[in-house]
């Protein structure tokens, strides 16, 4: 994953975007000839090319009817990227590299389907040095890749600015991918989910199997919280393994429930490997 080699994903919206740029998504903009909207009197929309003979014959009193359509438009796909200290975790895979791969894949796919892409990175504050403003030009995915590769996260601690990034988004409903490990406090999670409630939020949860499944078999070890620096001693044994994975399963269920409650899409869990086809399926099923 050290080279820019994005995977293709496909996404669809289950809502009509407000867009004037031509693109592939259903919009509320009248016009075009893709999505049928309804019929109108010919006198209201005097376009003889749209005259519908059957509808005209059905009318009483007789009059000419024309078909109306919605335009297809492009949207802006936003990537909100969590750069907090916990995202530096290197377990089975390097989480930062995985994040880079997923973000650039989404950007690449969005770019290819004609949408604009923007990226905002968050740690304790909104990162100024790592962001891509909305743009539909080709090469924006490479830019996302390079920004995430070059970003210095040595000073990053928490992900407190995740809800603040919403201020950078345009007011119109957009598709927002939130890429994080979601190891955040409950209050911050609530604020984040509420902040993006007016958008179509796709939480992408990056977990590593070394966090909760591939633990040392026996023995004991100290672990240090990458964000708070607090230390903990763990006595590894089958009982603790079970406890930890149960805890993570609970967290998975909790995240699902809270995303549903906040009106976001179901979170997409990535463990070690990013499977673009799974994400595609997840996005199409959820839409």
């Amino acid at each position: 994953m050290s080279v820019f080699k994005p995977d293709d994903i496909v996404y669809r919206l289950d809502w009509r975007a407000r867009s004037v740029q031509p693109g592939s998504h259903a919009t509320r903009t009248p016009g075009g000839h893709a999505d049928f909207r309804g019929f109108a009197r010919f006198m209201d929309q005097p376009d003889p090319r749209r005259i519908d003979m059957r509808a005209s014959l059905r009318q009483n009193p007789r009059q000419w009817m024309v078909r109306q359509y919605h335009e297809r438009g492009a949207i802006v796909v936003y990537l909100i990227v969590d750069l907090s200290a916990s995202m530096r975790f290197q377990g089975v895979t390097d989480k930062a590299a995985l994040l880079r791969h997923i973000a650039s894949s989404i950007a690449w796919s969005a770019s290819r389907s004609g949408d604009a892409v923007a990226m905002f990175a968050c740690d304790q504050k909104l990162r100024e040095d790592c962001r891509v403003l909305p743009s539909a030009r080709p090469g924006v995915a490479q830019q996302v890749w390079q920004q995430l590769l070059a970003v210095d996260t040595a000073q990053s601690v928490s992900a407190d600015s995740l809800p603040l990034a919403v201020g950078q988004l345009r007011r119109k409903r957009s598709l927002v991918f939130l890429l994080s490990d979601f190891h955040v406090e409950s209050a911050l999670l609530a604020r984040t989910l509420n902040a993006y409630a007016s958008h179509d939020l796709v939480p992408v949860v990056l977990w590593d199997s070394a966090e909760y499944r591939q633990l040392p078999q026996w023995g004991w070890g100290r672990v240090r919280d990458m964000e708070t620096g607090r230390e903990h001693t763990l006595l590894f044994r089958p009982g603790l393994h079970r406890k930890i994975s149960e805890h993570y399963e609970q967290r998975r269920a909790e995240l699902r429930a809270r995303c549903r409650a906040a009106g976001a899409r179901a979170p997409f869990f990535v463990e070690d490997q990013f499977d673009a086809q799974r994400l595609t399926r997840h996005l199409l099923e959820g839409s």
Partner: peptide, 25 residues
Amino acid sequence: LRGQPAFAYPSLQRLPVDGLSRWLE
């Protein structure tokens, strides 16, 4: 004294409270 070598872990919030481990500490 603090600062014994420790494994970096994303978040201790995700770890369950384990009595035996606390005793070991």
